[in-house]
Design a protein around this nucleic acid. Sequence first.
RNA 1: GGAAGGGUGGCCGAGUGGUUUAAGGCAUCAGUCUCGAAAACUGAAGUACGGGCAACUGUACCGUGAGUUCAAAUCUCACCUCUUCCGCCA
Length: 429
Amino acid sequence: MLDPKLYRDHPEKVREGLRRRGASFDLDGLLRLDQEKRALGTELDGLKAERNAASESIAQLKRAGKDASEAIEKTRTTGDRIKDLQIRFDVIEERARDLALLCPNLPHASVPDGKSSADNKVAATWGEDLRARAEARVVPDHIEIGMKLKLFDFERGAKISGSGFPIFTGAGARLERALINFFLDTHVKAGFTEVSPPYLVNRASMVGTGQLPKFEEDMYRSDGENRDRDLFLVPTAEVPVTNMHADEILDGASLPVSYCAFTACFRREAGSWGADTRGFLRLHQFDKVEMVRFSAPENSYEQLESLRAQAEKLLQLLELPYRVLELCAGDMGFGAAKCYDLEVWAPAEKKWLEVSSVSNFEDFQARRANIRAKSGGQTRFLHTLNGSGLATPRVLVSFLETHYTERGTVRIPEALRPWMGGLEEIAAA
RNA sequence: GGAAGGGUGGCCGAGUGGUUUAAGGCAUCAGUCUCGAAAACUGAAGUACGGGCAACUGUACCGUGAGUUCAAAUCUCACCUCUUCCGCCA
């Protein structure tokens, strides 16, 4: 949610930000509703002040032992007017809030212009040589490798759940688990606090991080006895972990606060049928370790760089070539003010795969979830950031294709071996 | 699932429908004292929204939502949630 003062006092700035994003949002409608809400509010407050004064004089009459029935009778009509006006005010206020929740965040000044993923800027690359080496020979793709080594089973996953729900088997399941533990342990060592949150969250939490109200069709929902009791399968650990501190005031001196969490992630991927449906590239359920950071507003962009470095470190340790994209204004997610994507190279797919998205939301989520920090006697919305660290299925694709050996085995990079019981390579059983 | 008891500011914790402008304490900030600090003492201090150039001022907020009333932290109803006990259970 944007700061109301921003669109009230500087609507042209908001308009410019929306234009850069290529977002269609009814800013004029929001400004009209906001104006109407304030006019009604002023009138309503005046009536309430009138009633409070009348009640006070009634109290004085009664205390003095005098008859107050005439004053009570007169105040009754004020009460009726308040009731009417209150209903009108509530309707307008709700409409204003509903609309404000649909407005995306504005891009930070450093975010490059652009309309789509084609306009993203390559900010860094790592492992060029490895990539060239991997490309120099013909490599079977991850599905073929996985079938040969019996690492997963798409058909049986589809039988029990549907497409997009693979089963990991044997060394594949082991590798998946090893990656997760390797990620978590690396983060904990770097000072992150590990949390294991619920996989089902309420509607308020989904609104807090910005998945709702706009993207409900992409979420798995379990209906409650009413709307407020609906539960949603988490699309990312960002949702439960960020909302852990909803409606709280954190001690400013404790910032930044950093968490890491493993969860399965659930996405309907509505509307993307046919795109990347083969293999692991687009799933309805996948595993991911997420980093979430609560930062003071002053240095959230330093924190963004440090989160990005933390995610990069994992890929370096896994010896997977990657590049870092600085997303353009038109390609960023709904709530992000600035965002980097980490993409690994998949030699057989011959394409880059997004395995991490690292974003600074500034106070966009903090406003929605009401997360503040107090320092120096001042209470302000803090800044929230998060980054994948990392999403396993796509890492696995690159991992299998990159570390596939001429002997038909998959080499385990040294950094991961402690989590694989010292195993040096995965071979056919 | 059943029974009982709770939910009040950053935290703990009082609170008879109308001096509640929410007692008191802790923590915080400022001052006095001190070479400096601690302690002690004195004082300040909730959050959000609106109006005003400003000093200031209005409204709302005691788990959430309805209701009763001229007036609700206080009374009524529903719900959420926590604690304890019982039952069931991985």
